[in-house]
Design a binder for these strands. Structure first.
Lengths: 462, 462
DNA sequence: ACATTTGTTGGTCTACATTTC
DNA sequence: CGAAATGTAGACCAACAAATG
């Protein structure tokens, strides 16, 4: 069929192969698609031509196009849905560094999530005490990859506090949540594996998935939990290997699963033999946390718990509770990515936990966050403000007419930085638009209040 | 062809497919191969039947076997060579945790490589001074992913000392060498990519490659350098994307490339547009180091330089010198794996460098290592002892009759732990057997001397 | 309810380059 | 040196399953 017959045919994307002869077909197609996405020629949500049509147009085999698409899908650029078509991923172009705050000088930051910093004084105090001891320098020697036994014992106490009983030999120290995720994902998944996640997800998972070639499959959120029917179906048909989930104060929606939802999800995890990566980052916020999934499906769940939010951002330490079947692989992953977690910081964390100071710090944070949440509710209570009143951030569903991106820009123009849903979106992302408000990030309640006021004005005007 | 006709045909591996109907063919084959390797049924160096023969035997298509083999090759279990056949990788079964020292209590450790620990006192001293300052707690807040500017400036000084000029915006802080390797490999390579390495290589690279599905292609060592003809050929035919190389005191052979070898390799890297991961871990050992490859092929080389050996094992900090083209991807990798390097330790390192204490520490280490090398040469000088006299470990080529493994066991039985070549082997491994002696690991020179004596006895007896 | 559209995936075919003999 | 052995890789085909209308 001559190429001409496509001239007046509406095709949303018309790549032109250069055919240098060097590069294989499928790679050239993939490369061009990637380039056109990154250049902005194809934007989030755009629909690509059906694989068969594209194959016809380019005069190549269907599988060659499929292969090209798969490359891009693994990088998280596009997402295909059988029967519907292939779309540019919703999050494309919104994946900035997690801590990027360049040009934020005159902005009130409700975007990037910082923990409260006042309690860092306790850390310094503990460090000073530590350095008075004669044998400190032993901390600076190589120890076990998983962490020194004394550190893992402190981890045991910490995890117990979060509602999980794990012996020290099944605890791994890592360098913070993101690092523990990296360890778990590299150790337990391979390129091409599929991992289910909520349709809005902590961006760190998206980054890792893109780098590792792990394909994320979005599961719609329903009343704080996941839509288990969809998840079950994904397991049945898509060969999903595992699930990343955060039952307490889910990032970014700040939703917490109730007991029923946990039980049902745990049942599904057991029944489908899913690998479950449970993120307990914000569990410390609840004075009486519900049992983690790792307690309900202990054979399947890897429990990730960082201290960076609960204690201090500078303490790059997380504890990983490992089920027996994955313990060896996870320890190997920790070895391959870190050799060992920063031992000085591990020692400080250990002492904070053992001395009881950790609890005190957490209680102070909870108190301050309650106040900040009250403020937030006072200002934005009339709008659709989701999340619990102890949270470190809240989720603001936007009135019709706003996209996350447009609201982000409008707020920014008025001097407030927030993060729109696109940054958290996985796949095509059919979710109600919203923005995350990191209410713990401003240095003072006054500053938070100013930011909230500006947002209220913006919402009321529009 | 009936299966029977193979009954009296010598085939080194005869898998039996269960064909549950669930698992695809190629995966079942791969799974069974992996199981038989891990169970020890197939040992290092064993030859597998040709793919065509196996395909005939199993009555499947050639490509199906090829696909199965590829899965295992990506995990580093086997390695195929066109024209020759497919073999079980030499290192299979020798990949232990890098710091595993369980049951080593009554053994003199010349196995795992520890840096000298005396200089940790300077670190403690610096920490104490740091904690006297009023504004320490600011260090514990989130900063830039790549590292605070002041830290990167110290990194600039550090790298300059190693012979490399890089502006701070092209320096990335990571959590040590292994971590920087993990960052570079996840950020710049994808599953299935091929990376050339010397036939004997730092095991950390093997671990990462196995996890990430990066395929390592061994390049024979020749008089301290790499066989550039073979490397060039690999580039031409195998589509090698990059190269991991360590020109100074290569781990494990302790060889250092001379100027000519560096220039020739740099030329090849430029000509073939290779990505070069240069490991400068031990460059600090040379009082007047030769220019790194990153200085000779600055567009292509990522320079990795940890302080863990030069300063203190407990300081999990490395500096990565990034060429412009890879800077963004590498920063993204650091973000995805760590969010940020441990800031407290980064601060200490920065102060050690800026105060000049770092130089003093390094000089002390060099002095002690010279003494230990003299000792080593005195005891083992009559044997084939490779490496330079400033090294942190030496390479002992074994007399005929020994395998690395057997020597390891014999030494262990006499109370000395050494690491045999198999632990460092990549691919089939046609190298002269040897063992690495980590002469910096014993706590004292006396202990080292005892260990060396035991080894000499072992060598002289056999 | 059923045919059509559409993405996914396992298996197959062919060309090619190197090593061995 | 050339033929046979051998591994590698891109492209192709066909079966399948979900979504759509």
């Amino acid at each position: 069929m001559p190429v001409n017959s496509f001239d007046d045919y509406p095709m949303t994307w018309r790549p032109s192969l250069r055919r240098t002869g060097e590069e294989p077909l499928y790679r050239e197609i993939a490369g061009q698609l990637e380039a056109d996405i990154r250049s902005g020629l194809l934007g989030p949500g755009d629909k690509l031509p059906p694989q068969r049509e594209l194959a016809d147009y380019l005069d190549v085999n269907l599988s060659t196009v499929a292969r090209a698409f798969k490359l891009c899908a693994e990088k998280g650029l596009i997402c295909g849905e059988t029967g519907r078509g292939t779309y540019i991923a919703a999050g494309v172009g919104s994946d900035l560094p997690m801590l990027d705050e360049t040009g934020l000088d005159r902005c009130i930051n409700l975007g990037a999530s910082h923990p409260l910093y006042e309690q860092n004084a306790y850390v310094v105090e503990t460090l000073r005490r530590l350095l008075k001891k004669a044998n400190v320098s032993a901390v600076l020697e190589y120890g076990e990859t998983a962490g020194r036994l004394s550190h893992r014992r402190s981890g045991q106490r910490w995890l117990e506090w979060m509602g999980l009983e794990v012996p020290p030999e099944r605890i791994l120290l890592t360098a913070g949540l993101q690092n523990s995720l990296a360890v778990a994902m590299t150790a337990l998944l391979r390129s091409g594996d599929k991992l289910a996640v909520s349709a809005l997800t902590y961006p760190g998972v998206k980054k890792l998935a893109g780098l590792l070639g792990v394909q994320l499959l979005p599961v719609p959120c329903r009343r704080g939990g996941l839509d288990l029917e969809v998840l079950d179906q994904l397991c049945r048909n898509e060969g999903v290997r595992g699930l990343y989930v955060s039952p307490d104060h889910h990032n970014p929606t700040a939703a917490t699963m109730d007991s029923g939802q946990r039980a049902a999800l745990a049942e599904l995890i057991r029944r489908r033999e899913l690998l479950c990566l449970e993120d307990g980052t914000y569990s410390f916020l609840s004075p009486a946390p519900l049992p983690p999934l790792a307690a309900l499906a202990p054979e399947q769940c890897v429990y990730l718990s960082t201290v960076s939010n609960a204690l201090s951002a500078g303490l790059r330490i997380a504890f990983v509770g490992m089920p027996p079947r994955y313990a060896q692989a996870l320890a190997g992953g920790g070895d391959a990515l870190n050799v060992m977690a920063p031992p000085l910081e591990a020692e400080v964390v250990s002492q904070l936990i053992d001395s009881g100071l950790a609890r005190q710090m957490v209680e102070e944070k909870r108190r301050e966050l309650r106040r900040r949440n009250q403020l937030t509710e006072r200002y934005l209570g009339n709008f659709s403000l989701l999340g619990e009143s102890g949270a470190q951030f809240r989720w603001l569903e936007l009135p019709p007419g706003w996209s996350g991106r447009s609201f982000e820009e409008a707020a920014r123009a008025r001097g407030v930085q927030v993060f729109g849903w696109e940054r958290f979106a996985v796949g095509g992302g059919r979710v109600t638009p919203g923005v995350r408000l990191a209410i713990s990030s401003p240095r003072s309640r006054q500053e938070l209040e100013r930011g909230l006021g500006l947002l209220r004005n913006l919402l009321e005007e529009a």
